[in-house]
């Protein structure tokens, strides 16, 4: 049947379009420039890790790797905590007040970064929070709170009233109900939010570019971007940087694929 053949052809071609650039970059990260230019598709002759060593040291990726780990994990943890508190409280507040609070916070998702980044820069400058990891963590939390409240709040709203009534009758206060009932039952939506936030903060360039200036505070995407100016078309080094930056997320993607697809699609789609 021609239908089946063309279906297979389309799917294979697109699979190649996705995979070939990725494989070329992975191979290239072990090669020298002449080797890449001679044949970029060939597997590397040896597992030469010079490019990785140079990227980590001269390219600052080693420092940036540590910074990105600290900044991403802190931002994700705090956003999940503050966001789930808000999502829980709001989802239990009855009537229009609950909906108004939810709508007010979720509205923030439709505001692009460009709409507030300049006053934020001024504000953080006056607070002494520019070029500081604390400042970057704080801004990360602020800009992702709306999406966190959207995903977790949307889920918590579907938990039945009776559950909370039973908890109240048993004498469980709101705080205890939060961590004994709401959080465990919302685990899937919290996991989805976590993966979305993780990818977003790990990969973000704009806020580090705005806020961070010293080499000690570089994050991975910012350090990688600086390669561009420094090494112009030193492809092996660029490729090693790309591979190093991507490893943690790729490992998590392979392990937790279902959460990634659900979390990123939910988070990105925004209602």
């Amino acid at each position: 049947m021609t239908g089946k053949v063309s279906r297979a052809a389309i799917l294979t071609i697109y699979a190649l379009i996705v995979a070939v650039p990725l494989v070329v970059v992975l191979f290239g990260s072990f090669k020298t420039t002449p080797e890449i230019f001679a044949n970029s598709f060939a597997p590397p002759g040896s597992l030469n890790v010079d490019n990785f060593a140079e990227a980590l040291t001269n390219g600052n990726l080693g420092v940036a790797f540590i910074n990105s780990t600290i900044i991403t994990s802190s931002s994700v943890t705090v956003t999940l905590f503050i966001g789930s508190l808000a999502a829980y409280g709001i989802s239990r507040i009855p009537g229009w007040r609950g909906w108004t609070l939810y709508g007010f916070i979720v509205l923030g998702m439709s505001v692009p970064v460009q709409a507030n980044m300049i006053p934020q820069y001024v504000q953080f400058g006056s607070l002494g929070l520019l070029d500081s990891q604390i400042g970057l963590i704080l801004i990360n939390i602020v800009v992702t709170l709306p999406v966190a409240v959207f995903i977790m709040g949307g889920f918590m709203r579907t938990l039945p009233d009776e559950l909370y009534e039973a908890a109240d009758i048993d004498g469980s206060g709101p705080w205890r109900t939060y961590y004994r009932i709401a959080v465990p039952l919302s685990a899937p939506s919290i996991a989805a939010t976590a993966t979305f936030l993780l990818v977003m903060h790990w990969n973000d360039l704009l806020y580090p570019l705005l806020f961070i200036s010293s080499e000690d505070n570089l994050t991975l995407p910012l350090a990688l971007l600086r390669f561009q100016g420094q090494y112009l078309t030193n492809y092996p080094l660029l490729f090693a940087g790309v591979v190093l930056t991507s490893i943690p997320i790729v490992v998590l993607y392979v392990l937790l694929q279902r959460f990634f697809v659900a979390g990123m699609t939910n988070g990105a789609v925004k209602g």
Partner: peptide, 24 residues
């Protein structure tokens, strides 16, 4: 006390997000 739960998020959101948006 339920009304206290959204307070940290609201304080951060209004201070560092809503106000800067209006300042733009």
């Amino acid at each position: 006390t339920l009304f206290l739960f959204p307070v940290p998020a609201l304080v951060l959101y209004v201070t560092f997000f809503v106000i800067p948006t209006l300042q733009t």
